[in-house]
Nucleic acid binder design. Sequence first.
DNA 1: GCGACAG
DNA 2: ATCTTGTCGC
Length: 256
Amino acid sequence: MEEDASTSGNSNISPQLVNEWIEIQDSLKKRLITDDEFDWKLPPMKDQDSEGMEENQDSNVEILKYVGGVDLSFSRNDSLIACATLVVLDISTLEVVHEDSSIIKLRIPYVPGFLAFREAPVLLELLKKMETTSPTLYPQVLMVDGNGLLHPRAPFLWISLLCHYWSLLKSLERSAGFGLACHLGVLADLPTIGIGKNAMWTTKSSLKPIFISVGHRVSLPSAIKIVKLFGRFRVPEPIRQADIRSKDFFRKHGLS
DNA sequence: GCGACAG
DNA sequence: ATCTTGTCGC
């Protein structure tokens, strides 16, 4: 009588557990910060419009340098086994300056809307470990494979997003979703950005967009600017590297 | 009651 | 997330 924590058809998740999860999300949401709240500043962007020339006076403030990315990959044979990977990239070189992975057995199934309860614990461990192991490279902002405020439990949100009502959106955000990026950001007290690769509606258009949403302590405009710094592939480099290296690490140890 | 559902 | 070849394009 072993439980199956793998499948998307969530096996034995009790409604009371889901209620607990909802309460946790709601309480963590109270700690969520959706404005810029970090001690670094964005590097100057190459093609920037009117507001590009802000106060370049602050020579005291350091410029964003270390951007992190996290992702999980899964075993083909045993879908309970996953590899969680944390990478940190130097934004000026785009090189990976830190990498760490850990293979774990998942105890919680994937339940849409509650991804964080499955994936956040391992990722938190990796972050905490790095905090003591190599604090000098610790990411100033973290890109998370999953959504932030744009979250399945807040379906009305993307409508607002698409309409560009960003200021209006702010007031709505607080009572909206709370995805993995938020969850992880609040628990690690680290600025995060959510990167979704498929959101809750099928893209019928020819283009395959990614979905950038606020995680924690980074505003949506800033999040977008940061993601644009990695404009080489569809998926921004930190997430992409975490994904690649997570799969590589897997092949090196267990069977693919 | 069923219906769209991040990874 | 994962199972899967060739293929179109920068």
